[in-house]
Design a protein around this nucleic acid. Structure first.
Lengths: 350, 350
DNA sequence: AATCGAGGGGAAAACTATTTCCGGAAAAGG
DNA sequence: CCTTTTCCGGAAATAGTTTTCCCCTCGATT
């Protein structure tokens, strides 16, 4: 096996004519122990000359963690999660950390196994973006892993309300849903249907509560159809919805990923959007702004949330996490082509 | 700082009443040194009882690498790369490896820095999916990093033709482009325009050569417009193309990401697809099969290529990489809505 | 009986950086 | 001048595993 030709700290120490410990202290400015300016200078120069880079595994062995963070998502190929990962990765990169991506494919067993692998790899922070699905059967085991990560000084951050007392960075889902519902109401719609996400996902519940709130405030009757956050599921949901009701004039789909399937199904059935039916999405998948009809949706700064998650984790690692436990990120309505004024307003009926 | 409460190999050795070395050998079956069956049994049981898990950093320090692989892409939010990452991650997960994702955002300096970070982290394999962009200024530095990774036993795999003598897993881009071009010719089109990718990307060059080949074989005059593989760029390219030519009846866009922008721009201009213009894409972004018109495109098994890359890397690490240097993955045509028979065939003119 | 070889186990080195503990020198104070 | 700090550098312990080197035993061979 060929030897690693790169130099180690002993080489630096030798060249600078100091001991190993001094070399280490000189190169790690925030060490407890001070080092004379001149000495530090000598060591730094030696390190430079030898192109010294610390062996992260040796360092990790002592420091008990590696400069890496992990993002746990359901699926990187889902644009929603890809944006979170990207935001997290950018921030991590800036701070000199590498990013693991873990796609749990909505399987709690896989998620658990991933978290154990992350623990063994002594990752500095784990960011749970995986929508907040918590299987009771796995909760205990998961909690043990998380505790173990905390024990070695690793940080845990959630990007969806997940567990009490976790540091959390979350979009204002409820507010966003209210915004969209009010937008549709403002356009004159009275029969506004809503397609939810999976029942056990927190994001989904929040969205629905926003919808319910806005509907109640306007004294309108809610019409809810269960969905599953998948594109195909979005098609199925609208099909099922139309089977049991044909009076709604607007439809609010609680994720863009689903909305894509919904739009496709509507097209197949010859329902024109927005002429026959206004459709609103949630989450603003960037690339779909080029679709037709372009989706009116709620924009969430997913990359920003991912980045905030990383910052939060690293603050936690550094031991200064004075920020509020749950931080809510604002969202905004982006009006495009898929919603329009109701043509024959029923307001008169009310 | 709280101590890691988990047990280490000494605990196992103590419980099994064997030495540290024997414990290590018993738990690593492929060790050089044999261990009696009964002894191994005892050690295994002790490990089980204590829920022993090896400290990966200590192991990495000796073994000189960690069970991690990295995928270097341009951008995870681009569906093309997301699928590759997903495929790689799935395979890595199966083999007990974690996956780093590195989005170079087409910046060779960032790519270089990432590779250095990966080297310091003693990653087992690096998979370059970043289209093959090689800046001459960075080539030397990059090569040094790669050599260093090889030195500690790490593997390098390219998913685009990149450097001579690297293990390479690549889609049959040229064949795919020929397939699409022939499809359009078969539909009766004679004026077939082509939008390329960036000049310095190998994938792009291969696509173009496939197009050129097919056009030449059919004795047709090529019409090429430069593009950049971005969605916005796809719109700009078709605009520029239409400024200088208005006779083409079919358009082959060398990436789906671009094709999305192209379609959007055509829609804006009132050009109907496929009635007025047939449009073919390349790469088959899954979620866009739900768009309208659904894009006729060349399907590439990107996840499969990502997975193959990981398998290849791990074989290399294990020291058995007898496979051919460059492995080409077949692609296929998927016909959807955006291409159709030319309505008034010009075949007679030929 | 002496020799050889293989199987099996232990002690210790190696991997490389951080950190604790200690001692000497210089500076400060009385 | 002597004592007490303060500053700075070195030696050694430490993190937890793998691997090398060495030794012992036991059966087979000459």
């Amino acid at each position: 096996m060929p030897r690693d030709p790169l130099s180690s700290l002993v080489d630096v120490a030798r060249l600078a004519k100091v001991s190993l410990s001094t070399a280490s202290r000189a190169l790690n400015p925030e060490a407890t122990h001070p080092v004379k300016r001149a000495t530090r200078q000598r060591v730094t120069e030696a390190a430079q000359r030898l192109e010294y880079r610390p062996n992260l595994m040796a360092r990790g062995l002592r420091r008990r963690r590696l400069p890496t963070i992990a993002v746990v998502v359901h699926d990187v190929t889902d644009a929603y999660f890809a944006e979170i990962v990207r935001g997290a990765e950018d921030e991590a990169y800036k701070q000199g950390y590498l990013t693991f991506v873990c796609s749990s494919r909505r399987d709690p067993a896989a998620e658990l196994r991933y978290v154990e692998m992350l623990r063994l790899s002594r990752v500095s922070g784990v960011i749970f973006a995986a929508g907040g699905l918590i299987e009771p059967n796995y909760q205990r085991a998961m909690r043990r892993q998380v505790e173990a990560i905390r024990d070695y000084g690793g940080a845990i951050v959630a990007l969806a309300p997940r567990v009490e007392r976790w540091a959390t960075e979350v979009a204002d889902n409820s507010g966003g849903a209210r915004l969209m519902t009010e937008h549709l109401i403002g356009l004159g719609h009275r029969r506004i249907a809503f397609i939810t996400g999976p029942a056990n996902v927190a994001t989904s519940a929040e969205c629905e509560s926003g919808y319910q709130l806005a509907m109640k405030a306007a004294e309108l009757k809610p019409l809810v159809e269960p969905g599953d956050f998948s594109t195909a599921g979005g098609g199925r949901a609208v099909a099922s919805l139309m089977k049991r009701d044909h009076t709604f004039t607007a439809l609010f789909v609680s994720s863009d990923t689903m909305a894509i399937g919904t739009l496709s199904e509507l097209h197949r059935r010859g329902v024109r959007v927005p002429e026959d039916l206004s459709v609103g999405g949630f989450g603003d998948i960037q690339s779909w702004e080029f679709a037709h009809p372009a989706l009116t949706t709620i924009r969430i700064d997913l990359a920003g949330i991912g980045a905030a998650g990383v910052r939060r984790a690293l603050e936690q690692v550094a031991g200064r996490d004075a920020a509020p436990r749950v931080r809510v990120h604002p969202v905004s309505l982006v009006t495009r082509e898929s919603t329009q004024q109701l043509e024959r307003p029923m307001a008169a009926l009310a």
